[in-house]
Design a protein around this nucleic acid. Sequence first.
DNA 1: ATGACGATTTACT
DNA 2: GTAAATCGTCATA
Length: 206
Amino acid sequence: MASMLGGPADTVAQALLGLMLCRRFEDGVVVRGRIVETEAYAGVEDAASHSFGGRRTARNEAMYGRAGMAYVYFTYGMHWCMNVVCATQGDPQAVLLRAIEPVEGIDRMETNRLANPKAARVLPEAQIGAGPARLCAAFGIDRAWNGSDLLKGGERGERLWLEPGVVPAVVVLGPRIGIDRAGEPWVSKPLRFGDAGSPSLSRRFR
DNA sequence: ATGACGATTTACT
DNA sequence: GTAAATCGTCATA
């Protein structure tokens, strides 16, 4: 598990598909979701990456950490998104988790969603984790998890970690979402990966 | 101190 | 399809 995260973002993005993202809450409840959609952010060369050009700030510091670290950031004034840091320490590559398919603790995912007044809309089960911010809302992931080690888990009896899962039968690729301003060639590179058979993708691939 | 912006989601026409 | 919501972060001064 640890070794597979040490590679470049595009490789890791594909390898993460099928793995289980798991969290245990203080009350002991566990939620699990199968990762079905990811995006690779290739580091200093990648104009769409928060680390483009070696940019290093308090916000993206986790990108420079060890593989297996979580990089969680806040955006649009209301949403959290989570990445799995990859490559080697000091090389700021990461993979954005764009969608999970609910597997366990679905009631708790609902509760977590409803706890956020901005996400009070009820969604069909398959859509609960279909989107980078939806996934974080469902799992209750926020800034407290930035920099946490996904291979070890968190503190306070709470944990956020990865487990082996079922590899997708068919993987589809496409351009990344919401990065138009990065310009070519980065806007067109096929760095978005999905499990073609999943009903929980954030958007269609084409 | 101020202003511009965002790896999104939701509601509405 | 378009637009609003909403605020932490960063660059500039």
